[in-house]
Design a protein around this nucleic acid. Structure first.
Lengths: 115, 115
DNA sequence: ACGGGTCATCGACACATGTCAATATCGACG
DNA sequence: CGTCGATATTGACATGTGTCGATGACCCGT
């Protein structure tokens, strides 16, 4: 294990602009946002979502990204650890899928129109 | 100028899970998300939003964050450069305010329920 | 004009991060 | 069993980032 927690489900808490969020909540949210704050990872999420069946294996993602296979694997691991993707190994291939509601949870914390 | 562009208004584009977003769009989005992906900056946004009148000066933010004044000033600059905060100097004090719709723009890009 | 208070900038430092080449792991299939 | 092909892990490297102390710039009373 390289990272810490199942974060995306821990994003929880208040809409950020309602109450001055504490240090712990801020750290958890920042951890999830750090996972998102990378061009390669954003494109990975986008590619997985747009791929047929909503799932894609590493081999599908290497070429469109233009990055090496280890780098792609690394980014995918970050996204899985952040709770944004799930990894399912079928035979030789590893299939990745969006975690339902994970991105929306982040979005809802950032939304200000909940007043 | 340390950074690049008025980003928050440039977040634009598609909801991320609709079409595989291009390299440029991914970079722009990542830039904005990087500005958000820090506990101190998240708490700053939260503190400013919760503060009386929706605005706060640096001196209001130093103590609740527990960081040095230069560090707070640095984080505020990052948020302003990202288009998430506005800075207005009145007399000796610098007042910061949330840019209306900036956070919501980021949130809408992340939302998947736009199908 | 002077001094005190608010904020920004600079320089330095430790640490995290993205990337790749090389290597390891592991399943499928002759 | 041996090999090939798909992923993951490791090690190394350059670069980016958060933090602070020191300093500079600015406004405002006195």
């Amino acid at each position: 294990m390289t990272t810490t927690l199942p974060v995306a489900s821990t994003v929880c808490c208040a809409p950020l602009v309602r109450a001055p969020l504490g240090a712990e909540d801020a750290t958890r949210l920042a951890t999830t946002l750090k996972a998102l704050a990378d061009p390669a990872r954003l494109r990975l999420l986008s590619l997985v979502a747009a791929h047929e069946g909503g799932e894609a294996c590493v081999c599908d993602l290497i070429e469109p990204l233009g990055l090496s296979q280890p780098t792609v694997s690394h980014h995918l691991k970050v996204l899985v650890d952040a709770g944004l993707l799930t990894r399912e190994k079928r035979g030789v291939w590893a299939y990745f899928t969006l975690v339902p509601g994970a991105l929306d949870a982040v979005a809802s914390v950032l939304t200000t129109t909940g007043s």
